[in-house]
């Protein structure tokens, strides 16, 4: 039933994966001045169906098991490899997407393609159809595991805890006027939420809005705290400080309006975009402030992940 989607995913992977990621790197090679008889042991012992012929790591030809059998039939075991090999070998570059290999296999019907580096054209590997299948499966497996792990972590935190009301609290203290430390709360929260398995987009929105709020605490107040609550359906971030407060909230929310001192502007902030930015990235934002007493900002970011699971 999911056939169409699976095909698309695999096609996508063939564009994503590079040939060098799936090719075999330890290639058996033979020099062009060797007698054909020399190939017997390699073909037999290594169970391979074709050997690239190289001189000084430069690919000069290829001998397949079919070529070898022909020599056997004609009793030419003493002939030199260079006289019996296929000379104009079709190759692939290591940095090409896997889909190019797929297309070449379809076009020529060969069993293998030597892989060379784009820079110096030296042989770096060999690719067969089974390498492609293995590579794609491996990538699918990793992607599946990552997704599984992410979902597991995020959903199970709440499933494993039994309580009437659940939230996880992360508390950060922010120093006023200390620009060297500004950003530590936001980046700390970002890492934490990411590790808990929330989707990158949600984490990014939470991190950016927290960061803007953190910059405000550092730029305008003596210090404050950021408390993030991870709840089953949302992240609630509460930012409080002890003043000086915002005299005109409506004005403060206007893009471009700023009361930031010069030193804040020199650092790349104070352009009157902080609060509008927070509003942009939050699903809901409430701002309350009393002059001289302090400001309380609440940012809500909904977890669409969980919304869908209801």
């Amino acid at each position: 039933m999911d056939n169409k989607r699976t095909t698309t995913k695999i096609q996508e992977l063939t564009y994503e994966l590079k040939i060098k990621e799936v090719m075999s790197k330890n290639v058996e090679t033979v020099g062009s001045k060797m007698p054909v008889s020399h190939l017997r042991d390699i073909l037999y012992n290594k169970r391979i169906s074709g050997i690239p012929i190289v001189n000084d790591n430069n690919l000069v030809g290829l001998i397949s098991i079919e070529d070898f059998i022909k020599c056997l039939e004609h009793n030419e075991m003493d002939a030199l490899v260079e006289d019996k090999m296929t000379k104009n070998v079709k190759t692939l570059y290591a940095d090409e997407p896997l889909v190019h290999a797929v297309m070449k296999f379809e076009k020529y019907g060969f069993g293998r393609f030597p892989v060379i580096s784009r820079k110096d054209k030296k042989l770096v590997g060999i690719i067969t159809k089974s390498d492609i299948i293995k590579g794609v499966l491996k990538k699918l497996e990793t992607a599946y595991h990552d997704e599984e792990e992410r979902r597991y972590r995020a959903s199970h935190i709440f499933n494993d805890v039994i309580a009437d009301e659940i939230f996880f609290k992360f508390q950060y203290y922010v120093e006023g006027k200390n620009f060297d430390k500004a950003g530590e709360a936001a980046t700390g929260l970002k890492k934490t939420l990411y590790r808990l398995g929330l989707s990158p987009e949600i984490v990014r929105r939470a991190a950016i809005s927290t960061y803007e709020a953190e910059i405000n605490i550092v730029a305008f107040t003596k210090g404050g705290r950021i408390t993030a609550y991870l709840e089953p359906h949302q992240i609630r971030i509460v930012i409080t400080d002890k003043g000086p407060g915002i005299p005109d909230i409506e004005k403060a929310l206007q893009p471009g309006f700023s009361t930031a001192p010069g030193w804040v502007r020199e650092l790349g902030f104070g352009a009157g975009m902080g609060l509008p930015n927070i509003k942009k990235f939050a699903d809901k934002m409430t701002l309350k402030s009393t002059v001289e007493k302090g400001t309380r900002l609440v940012i809500i970011i909904k977890l669409s992940d969980y919304r869908n699971e209801d």
Binding site: F179, A207, I208
Partner: peptide, 17 residues
């Protein structure tokens, strides 16, 4: 690309991925 060189540039990059 920026000509601002302080630690907040990296924090900005970090939170914005």
């Amino acid at each position: 690309l920026t000509s601002l060189t302080n630690i907040q540039v990296i924090n900005t990059a970090n939170v914005s991925d």
